[in-house]
Amino acid sequence: MNATLCSEAVAPTRQELLIFTIAGLLAGCRHVAVGAASPIPGAGALLERARSNGTPRVSVLGSTRNNFFTNGGVELFDCAAQGRIDAFFLGGGQIDGSGNVNLVGTGSYPSTEVRWPGSFGSAYLYFLVPRVILFREEHTRRVLVERVDFISAPGTSEKGIYRPGGPHALLTNLALFDYDRERRRFRLRSVHPGHGIEEVLDNTGFAFDRPDTVPQTPLPDHETLALIRGRVRDEIGEVYPRFVETAFPSGV
């Protein structure tokens, strides 16, 4: 009972809303993999598992307890190529309106003005994982651009290229978009509470489709919030101890 009462008293944090929204994008998945430096996607995947009787399986890179891989760094990629991973998460220094992702830098390659770490597994996993969820908290025109400066991984491919995978959705601090593979464009699905369509338009550098009336992103109910603050917090804390200290309301 206490957990329920506390949840009623404390509204969801920004991170908790993102965790809940990610879980909603994973319905029906059998196996979700979470890459490095991804505490919110990891928590979202663990929430979906916690509330759906153990499906999907979740592999969190860096975890000992929630990790199915024993064949070294290559196994994630082999698994993806076999169709054994249904969802994965990618970020991006830049993401454009066609779903192209840039993890390399801005300006002219190779002597980029701003250099980011590099492409990691994006150029491969974007082709092979059916539901790639683009997740970037910062929603600004410097991140969401009309055209990326460097394509680490293209949003779509020409006919004839083997590509069971690709972008599924884009989630930021302001909004949730679906990706339309036919139209090669994003479509706004909802705007998070406290934000409006004008703010989304002002801060998005690319054109996107949207319904006449844009709904608000749904909030987690009390039971779900208690699950996030209990079991999910504990599970993700194994890999991201500093994240759980800051992302969840203290004393809950």
């Binding site: 390399v104 492409s119 150029a123 491969y124 092979l128 394509i151 491919s157």
Partner: peptide
């Protein structure tokens, strides 16, 4: 041989 990569600027460089 490896899947993916096609159409990326990695391949171009």
């Amino acid at each position: 041989p490896l899947r993916g990569i096609l159409g990326s600027d990695l391949l171009k460089h």
